[in-house]
Design a protein around this nucleic acid. Structure first.
Lengths: 116, 116
DNA sequence: GCAATACTAAACCAGTTAGTTTACAATATA
DNA sequence: TATATTGTAAACTAACTGGTTTAGTATTGC
């Protein structure tokens, strides 16, 4: 065995954290909810069919990905979306954008070729 | 305990698979490599500092996310990128795009307010 | 026909994740 | 001051992940 089955420990970069945070339906739902307006953890957990600690952990994942920020006022934690982090994955996607647009062009070309 | 600690088993949707596939640096590197031109599994594995089976599994994750397709010719598996799947996350992002652009507008407004 | 090549499959392993429950701390309110 | 509210922390669990190794299956080429 080369490394005893251990994972490669290069620390996860920003995109890892963002993509991973977004890879869960619950967390995407939280984000959508917060895109409407800020909310407390309890408010966020309420429609979620899971315990408060579970919801709280999801929020923490979103915080680590820099997609959400929370502020404690009294005993309530107010969370709000930080949409700017999403522009990071938009920029990543940018490299491929022309790519799938080209693909669509090719498909159109193919289709119009078929018509003849 | 409500469900004995088991995960919620709602089957992962398309976005789950795509975001999860992209949440790993190795797989993003594979995708970038394939954006240049198609390649065999061995060719893909070569610069990757991991065993062939490991690379093969990464490719499978990308295939399940519909980001890559592979075709076996003889004993060689040729893989190519399927950029169209990326348009799915572009569309998801679309909902939030105006959002972070607004945010930037607000920042600009703030900055020009400061100048006065 | 036999050896090399290009994989896949299966079994294993350690670390992570997503949930739970119970317990606690801090704050608000009656 | 006592009680209810809002959360976090810690310990636990099952499943998942990302890697390994060893073995096996096709296919190619000498």
């Amino acid at each position: 065995m080369q490394n005893n089955g251990k994972r490669c420990m290069t620390s996860p970069d920003k995109l890892d954290l963002i993509f991973k945070a977004l890879s869960d339906q619950t967390r995407r739902a939280l984000l959508k909810r917060l895109s409407d307006k800020p909310a407390s953890i309890s408010e966020l957990a309420l429609p979620l069919a899971m315990s408060l600690p579970a919801a709280s952990k999801h929020i923490k994942v979103l915080e680590r990905a820099n997609l959400v920020s929370c502020q404690k006022l009294g005993r309530v934690h107010y969370c709000k979306i930080k949409p700017k982090a999403l522009s990071d994955i938009d920029r990543w996607l940018g490299f491929y954008r022309s790519f799938w647009e080209d693909k669509l062009d090719h498909l159109e070309a193919f289709v119009s070729e078929e018509k003849k």
